[in-house]
Computed example of a mutant assay.
Amino acid sequence: MTRVLVVGSINMDLVTSARRLPQLGETLLGEGFATYPGGKGANQAVAAARLGAQVALLGCVGNDAFGRQLLAHLEAEGVDIRRVATVDGSTGIAAITVSGGDNAIVVVPGANHQLTPSHLDAAEQAFAEADVVLTQLEIPLETVRHAALLAQRHGKPLLLNPAPAVALPEALLQSVALLTPNEHEFLTLLAQPDADWRAQLAERPGKLVMTHGKHGAYFALKRGELRHQPGFEVQAVDSTGAGDTFNGALATFLPLGLEEAVRRANAAGALSVTRHGAQGGMPTLAELEAFLGSKA
């Protein structure tokens, strides 16, 4: 059982469905509304837990109804929430519009931006106990840097899902064991918008996996050989949370080697889009194994 420490955001997703995404300045009549647990950190923690990992989450929620609901949900999913702090103010939210298999998202960080390096220092033992540390960019960059420092101090690989995308300092890029951007985030984080992505993959062998939606994922092995893991064909209902499922699965299966971890993560991500909600479609280990068995 892989021990995964997730350092990241916890949100309540407010999801509206419509026949299409609205244009700028346009008001549409929606077709449905629901709330779902979300946040990239919480999503990735739940994804890993459902796939059999032993998961601890380090983050912040507000002292409001959403915060209480989210903590109860995470605990029910088997995530260790002892290091999630409750702070003054509102819990983070994501306002999501879904149409077909596409979505548009606005995130209000709330309590997530109160997660500081001091929170991580107080929970340093969790870094020592983890096999893999997983983080994202919905928390302050200073906190992400500190997570990288603590992971290095304890000799643990840090997986960074650079979303939402920003240009990252080279020192942070060098300290990360594995970067997992999608095709849109890839060149932004490197601050090289016109670069050849294949060349960039080759320059970071074994340290970068680029996801490309239904087309799968691309990465380079440690000897620089480019690999493509094709996507798995499914009927997409809601793509929200597919990337988070991929990352949670990748962290869970990383001890099996990068190629196998990417294959399983790709399959888990594909399964996640077949049901509604960022966490609603995340597969269990049994569901993933059955799916992979059907594709053999």
Rank of each mutant, 00 (worst) to 15 (best):
I105Y: 08
A85W: 02
P140E: 06
T180E: 05
T135G: 10
L173A: 13
G101L: 00
I139M: 07
T180C: 14
A126D: 12
P157H: 09
N112D: 11
R68M: 01
P164T: 01
L179T: 05
L179N: 05
L150E: 13
A151T: 10
A130F: 08
L115K: 04
E129L: 14
S175T: 12
H184T: 15
P140L: 03
A72K: 09
L168M: 04
A165E: 00
D131P: 07
L158T: 08
D131C: 07
D121I: 03
E75S: 13
E124H: 07
V176G: 06
G67I: 01
V106H: 07
S99A: 15
L115W: 02
K156E: 13
H113Q: 13
N112P: 05
L137I: 08
E185I: 08
E124Q: 14
V108K: 01
S90L: 14
L178F: 07
L179Q: 08
R153Q: 15
A165V: 00
E129C: 09
G110C: 05
P109S: 05
P181K: 08
P164Q: 02
E77S: 13
D88P: 12
N182D: 13
D131E: 14
G101C: 01
R145M: 13
A148F: 08
T135K: 12
E124F: 00
I139W: 04
V79F: 05
E185A: 12
L173P: 10
R145G: 09
V87S: 04
P181C: 06
T143E: 07
A95N: 15
L115Q: 09
